[in-house]
Computed example of a mutant assay.
Amino acid sequence: MINRMESFVIKKLLYSIRRMSTADKRLPFTVANIQTLPAALHSHILDHYNRVLLKAMFLTAFLAFSR
Rank of each mutant, 00 (worst) to 15 (best):
R4V: 00
M5I: 00
M5E: 00
M5R: 03
M5D: 05
E6N: 01
E6I: 02
I10K: 07
I10C: 00
K12M: 07
K12W: 08
L13Y: 08
L14E: 15
Y15W: 09
S16Y: 13
I17W: 06
R18D: 08
R18E: 09
R18M: 02
R18N: 09
M20T: 06
T22D: 10
T22L: 09
A23I: 01
R26F: 08
L27C: 07
P28K: 07
F29R: 01
V31L: 13
A32C: 07
A32K: 12
N33P: 03
N33L: 13
N33C: 10
N33M: 15
N33T: 03
I34N: 06
Q35V: 09
Q35D: 14
T36K: 14
L37P: 12
P38Q: 08
P38A: 09
A39V: 12
L41R: 08
L41V: 08
H42R: 14
S43T: 13
S43I: 12
S43R: 09
H44T: 14
I45D: 01
L46G: 13
L46A: 15
D47E: 13
D47A: 11
D47K: 11
Y49S: 14
Y49K: 15
N50E: 10
N50S: 13
R51F: 05
R51Y: 02
R51E: 01
V52N: 10
L53Q: 09
L53I: 06
A56E: 12
A56H: 13
A56D: 12
M57N: 07
M57D: 04
F58G: 05
F58S: 00
L59E: 05
L59P: 03
T60N: 03
T60I: 02
L63S: 00
L63K: 03
A64E: 07
S66V: 05
S66A: 08
